[in-house]
């Protein structure tokens, strides 16, 4: 493949295979690749190697730091903030993922159809997906505030006497953020389920209907098994994105991560430790490596899954 023949019209018309066809200059592919390769190598692969290197030093923003072996990781093990962040991010995965697998599927089954009104519902459900976590966070802050709509409604209905501290109580804040995440993500996974449902053989539904199965049993015995691979993929994908949560929690807690950092997530911890003038970039690098180890495997599984099931 190192021939440098110039681009000449090949004779005879029957150029088949490699023998007689025009050769491109050997460097042509590299010109095509250059911009992408440059950006990805410089801004993804190099920082990754650098993060690995940082994680074993005591570097700060202002000094490069010395090699300290696994000291950062030992320190992590005893760090209260790190433990809180891990608990919060893990809880996020445990609570959000099952909802993200189940609810969008039900929603997809309900909006699946060709009528205009169903198309309208599909579009409406998808809308929150295109909104940034900051906007969504602000909208929900107005709803969840002690004087917000939800407390107003509950007070008016006489359910509560005192406003509920949705954004101050440790667990309620976390749950509120999860609700916001689900609210934003439902439409996204719904569309993915719709695509998977389009591939289910119609005759299965007809056969089920013939056997007297109503819509619920058709859903349970045809739709659910028919999208099983997609469910698994969504499980992997939403696990990764739930663990990475940042914007919703950041905005709902006003950027602080809650009183005493009680609602901090792993991404927030990386941001807090690794930026600012007091940044401990080495220590932040160690937290980053933990995150990579936890998520890299899930991302790899997702990729493998995607290549195996369709996507041709």
């Amino acid at each position: 493949m190192t021939t440098t023949t110039t681009i000449t019209p090949s004779r005879a018309g029957q150029a088949r295979g490699g023998a007689d066809r025009t050769h491109d200059r050997w460097w042509a592919p590299w010109l095509f690749l250059a911009p992408a390769l440059l950006i990805v190598a410089v801004f993804v692969l190099f920082p990754f190697v650098n993060t690995l290197a940082l994680s074993v030093t005591d570097a700060t923003l202002l000094k490069p730091g010395q090699f300290i072996g696994v000291d950062n990781f030992v320190r992590l093990a005893g760090d209260e903030r790190f433990r809180t962040a891990m608990v919060n991010s893990m809880l996020y995965v445990v609570c959000v993922v099952p909802v993200m697998i189940a609810a969008p599927l039900a929603l997809a089954a309900l909006v699946n159809g060709t009528t205009r009104i169903l198309g309208f519902f599909r579009t409406a459900y998808y809308l929150p997906v295109v909104m940034s976590s900051v906007i969504v966070g602000l909208i929900w802050t107005n709803l969840l505030d002690t004087r917000g709509l939800i407390n107003q409604l509950l007070g008016w209905l006489g359910v509560i006497n005192e406003p509920i501290g949705f954004l101050s109580d440790r667990w309620l804040t976390l749950i509120s953020a999860m609700v916001v995440t689900v609210w934003t993500g439902l439409g996204y996974y719904m569309v993915i389920y719709l695509a998977a449902m389009a591939n289910i053989d119609r005759s299965l539904y007809e056969a089920a209907a013939m056997d007297g199965a109503g819509p619920f049993r058709q859903f349970r015995h045809v739709t659910v098994p028919g999208v099983r691979a997609t469910s698994a993929l969504i499980g992997l994908f939403s696990s990764v994105s739930a663990f990475r949560v940042f914007g919703e929690v950041y905005v709902l807690t006003g950027g602080t991560g809650g009183t005493g950092g009680q609602n901090i997530t792993v991404t927030m911890l990386i941001q807090q430790e690794g930026t600012g003038l007091q940044a401990q970039t080495g220590y932040a690098g160690a937290i980053s490596m933990v995150m990579f180890v936890l998520l890299g495997g899930l991302l790899a599984a997702q990729l493998w899954f995607q290549n195996r099931g369709g996507d041709k």
Binding site: F48, N50, T275, S288
Partner: peptide, 30 residues
């Protein structure tokens, strides 16, 4: 078709496996 095509494809796949949050501090330093 060119030499190292598989390797280059692999590099892009590896890049996919790195969560952005895990390299964001190093990106900032860069």
């Amino acid at each position: 078709r060119f030499r190292f095509r598989g390797l280059v494809t692999g590099l892009f796949v590896v890049a996919l496996l790195v969560p952005i949050e895990a390299i964001i501090i190093a990106q900032f330093l860069l």
